[in-house]
């Protein structure tokens, strides 16, 4: 069972109270971008066994979107954080560095 703490209302929400929103920190490429950039934005997704960054919505609660960093293999949660950011906060990266030495995710490591 996956339990994520919503950073907006502080509730320890069970996975069934949340709605998954896919990979986090995607950059939107629209008009004026190259075909490769648009294709990457639409279709290229990470599918890691290990550290992953995702978007979730507290749908059976306060209704807010937030971010989560977790391990897809063990369901260990490294932390949840605000949706108003383009990258994971330093504290969470620090936790991951300790718990998963040598980790890599897109251009983060």
């Amino acid at each position: 069972m996956l339990i994520l703490k919503c950073p907006y209302c502080g509730i320890e929400a069970d996975e069934t109270e949340l709605s998954p929103g896919g990979e986090a920190h995607l950059k939107r490429y629209g008009p004026g971008s190259s075909d490769e950039e648009l294709e990457g934005y639409l279709f290229s997704r990470e599918n890691p066994k290990g550290v992953h960054f995702e978007r979730w919505r507290h749908v059976y609660g306060c209704g807010k979107w937030f971010h989560a960093a977790r391990c897809t293999a063990t369901l260990e949660v490294f932390g949840t954080y605000s949706a108003q950011t383009f990258e994971p906060p330093k504290e969470i990266i620090k936790i991951i560095k300790v718990k998963r030495p040598g980790w890599k995710w897109r251009d983060l490591s």
């Binding site: 509730i11 320890e12 069934t16 109270e17 059976y60 609660g61 306060c62």
Partner: peptide, 22 residues
Amino acid sequence: APVNIKALEIGEIRRTRFSQIA
């Protein structure tokens, strides 16, 4: 509901689901 009900204080509101409904 998927709630840790033992920890809930009196006067604390919890939004969740009851079986299949909000």
